[in-house]
Simulated scan of single mutants.
Amino acid sequence: MPARTGKYFILTISTLLLLGLGVLAADQAAWAAPNIEALKMTPNTDGTQTYSVTIQILTIMTLLTLLPAMLMMMTSFTRIVVVFAILRQAIGLQQTPSNQILVGLALFLTFFIMTPVWERINVEALQPYLNEEITSLTALQRAQIPVREFMLAQTRESDLTTFAHIGGYQGFATEEEIPLTILVPSFVTSELKTAFQMGFMLFIPFLIVDLVVASILMAMGMMMLSPIIISLPFKIMLFVLIDGWSLVIGTLAASYGF
């Protein structure tokens, strides 16, 4: 599974880079013209050479800056990383696991969850485009379909209505009419709400441990002793005994239909 996941992640990145050329082009025919080169070399009279970078390279560089935002805002990454952060806070650990570990775990879990979507993009958009069966614009339109379906499946109707009202839309007859400018913020808002709901459920058992420890210390007259010092080992032990990481990761994956 990791090898397949990495392969489809690389293919998806390639799709975004290649297909983005068709989105930003003002004239699709101009992109397909054989006389347009990605890098043009002009010899000078003194024997030196001058290189001119065309707009294709600039487009790719621009897409590279947008890829992290697209990965966070249009995939399951937001929900996962927020739940992990709330879990760490609920246990009472400030820096363990570190931010790098949580982000890395969230990133690879995102690859796992998004693999079916990236497989469809590879089959329906990337491979036909690489085989020169379809144009870049058609490939981009095909690549949007699996991503839109994934986001729509996780987006609440109330959030869509809210952002449609803010954007001045009266409503949408079909899901295909929903623009990405409305769908993406609605999806992110729904993901944050779901993540906080899951985080609240994670907080309850650890809160109970804190209350029990605090009550015992109060009954013993040890009011100057911080309950966190005593409850932290018990919360860690409880989390390990119930195999907490597997439960949390399994619940996150199950929330997307796995």
Score class of each variant (00 low, 15 high):
M1Y: 11
P2I: 03
R4S: 07
Y8M: 03
S14C: 10
T15H: 14
L17S: 09
L17A: 05
L19D: 09
G20A: 04
G20W: 06
L21M: 08
V23E: 15
V23S: 14
A29T: 13
A30P: 03
W31L: 11
W31H: 09
P34I: 05
N35V: 07
K40N: 15
Q49C: 05
T50I: 10
T54D: 11
I55L: 11
L58W: 14
L64V: 15
L71V: 14
L71F: 15
T75W: 06
F77G: 01
F77N: 04
F77L: 05
R88W: 09
I91V: 09
P97A: 04
P97I: 03
L109M: 15
T110L: 01
I113V: 14
T115A: 10
E124P: 02
Q127N: 06
T135H: 03
A139Q: 12
L140Q: 09
L140I: 02
Q141R: 08
Q141I: 00
R142A: 03
R142D: 04
Q144H: 10
Q144F: 13
V147G: 02
R148G: 08
R148Y: 14
E149P: 00
A153P: 13
Q154R: 02
S158L: 09
T161P: 00
T161Q: 07
T162G: 00
F163N: 12
A164Y: 07
A164L: 01
I166S: 07
G167S: 15
Y169K: 04
F172D: 03
E176Y: 05
L180Y: 10
T181V: 06
T181P: 11
K193D: 05
T194R: 05
A195E: 06
F196P: 03
Q197V: 12
F200L: 08
L207A: 10
L207H: 12
I208Y: 14
V209F: 15
D210R: 02
V213E: 13
A214F: 15
M220Y: 13
I230K: 10
S231Q: 01
L232N: 09
L232I: 05
P233A: 02
K235E: 03
L238N: 06
L238P: 12
G244K: 04
L252S: 09
